[in-house]
Computed example of a mutant assay.
Amino acid sequence: MKIAFYGSSLVSSYWNGAATYYRGILKALHARGYDITFYEPDAFDRQQHRDIDPPPYARSVVYPATVEALNGVLAEAAAADIVVKANGVGVFDAELLDGIVRHARGDALTVFWDVDAAATLDEMRADASHPVLRALPALDMVLTYGGGPPVVDAYTGFGARHCIPVYNAVDPETHHPVPRDERFACDLAFLGNRLPDREARVEEFFLRPAAALPKQRFLIGGNGWESKAMPDNVRHRGHVYTAEHNAFNCTPRAVLNVARDSMAHIGFSPATRVFEAAGAAACLITDAWEGIEQFLIPDVEVLVARDGQDVADHLAALTPDRAAAIGEAARRRVLAEHTYDLRAEQVDALFRAHRAQAAA
């Protein structure tokens, strides 16, 4: 089956945290026989900061961020059996969603794939004319990369026919243990872009422990932090390319996950970095959110912190041996239960069941 997928970027993770999710899911779907074309706009300097060349598992189409080019790539949706619009493209989001509904064949499966469902739902509650609300009656299903029962209930309450979470996962060929890299040597590392709905939580869970532990070393990676005031024991790395993620995760004594406000509030939303770190056998400290035990066992496969003081306490007590044991336990868990091959098996079953139902 042919998939036309309209998203932010497959080849660049620059200001695009969903890149590794797209890569993992689409690579595994391609292995199951899907013919995939990924359409992404040339925007936000992503093409100047590519992490990968166009991959063998999807045809990569980069189009100028113009109305003419947008209409050209939307017209190609008519050739697909499955047409997907992901949120957070950043340009023409409303037009893309309206366009896939307009251009998809009558027998094609139309999907809205929400990689920031909690935030999208907040927008929908505040705006009765939201483009997703307008499109829901014409869409066959909504897939999300997190959110659990609260997101499913909210989407179906807004009128979605089906809403199914397809969680982040690990591709063991991409994220795995590697030798130390002294560029990333520290006691605690955090990787994430500076965003308005994350910054206060980074201050609490990362900068507050850094200030409380002046003799320990902290490292922050991601875009936007260069102008942020930080304690002297915090080093800013800037954008960390995906090829460096394994070393970034393997080298520190521990790595930190900090959810965005909406994801922390709704729960059941493990970020890509949770599985990337676990796949690399990193000792992960995560802020507390409902549903974490569905993915990793607290105190065995992950350390959970309710606030910055908990992070500082975890670090103060964390020996290298215990960090290694937690990281290895997490790696075994995600390889057994949370790989993109398993997520693709889930998505493939959903797609095939829908087509069989439609044919019947």
Results as ranks from 00 to 15, higher is better:
residue 198 R to A: 12
residue 92 F to Y: 14
residue 74 L to N: 05
residue 165 P to L: 04
residue 159 G to C: 09
residue 270 P to F: 13
residue 46 R to K: 14
residue 33 G to P: 06
residue 21 Y to T: 05
residue 327 G to T: 11
residue 103 H to A: 13
residue 136 L to A: 11
residue 193 N to I: 10
residue 314 H to W: 15
residue 119 A to F: 14
residue 226 E to F: 02
residue 124 M to Y: 09
residue 269 S to Q: 04
residue 2 K to R: 15
residue 185 A to M: 04
residue 166 V to F: 01
residue 188 L to Y: 04
residue 44 F to Q: 13
residue 65 A to M: 04
residue 265 H to A: 15
residue 86 A to I: 07
residue 278 A to H: 03
residue 160 A to P: 00
residue 120 T to P: 01
residue 5 F to M: 03
residue 326 I to F: 08
residue 284 L to E: 11
residue 151 V to T: 14
residue 253 R to E: 08
residue 210 A to C: 09
residue 191 L to V: 08
residue 118 A to R: 06
residue 271 A to I: 02
residue 313 D to P: 03
residue 253 R to P: 11
residue 244 E to Y: 02
residue 257 N to W: 14
residue 40 E to N: 04
residue 305 A to M: 13
residue 245 H to R: 10
residue 225 W to E: 00
residue 209 P to R: 01
residue 258 V to K: 06
residue 321 D to V: 06
residue 186 C to A: 15
residue 14 Y to G: 10
residue 81 D to R: 03
residue 26 L to C: 01
residue 295 F to L: 03
residue 100 I to E: 14
residue 224 G to Q: 02
residue 63 Y to F: 15
residue 331 R to S: 09
residue 225 W to K: 00
residue 99 G to A: 05
residue 199 E to A: 11
residue 135 A to Q: 10
residue 101 V to D: 07
residue 232 D to G: 07
residue 204 E to G: 06
residue 82 I to V: 14
residue 144 T to P: 10
residue 248 F to P: 05
residue 211 A to I: 00
residue 342 L to S: 02
residue 301 E to N: 12
residue 155 Y to T: 07
residue 10 L to P: 14
residue 56 P to F: 12
residue 26 L to I: 03
residue 11 V to T: 15
residue 287 D to F: 10
residue 273 R to Q: 03
residue 144 T to I: 09
residue 129 S to I: 02
residue 10 L to D: 11
residue 123 E to G: 13
residue 210 A to H: 11
residue 95 E to V: 07
residue 234 V to M: 06
residue 64 P to Y: 10
residue 30 H to D: 14
residue 348 D to P: 11
residue 195 L to N: 01
residue 120 T to L: 03
residue 284 L to T: 15
residue 174 T to L: 15
residue 192 G to H: 12
residue 49 H to L: 05
residue 66 T to A: 02
residue 354 H to D: 07
residue 335 L to N: 09
residue 42 D to K: 11
residue 343 R to M: 04
residue 313 D to F: 03
residue 193 N to R: 10
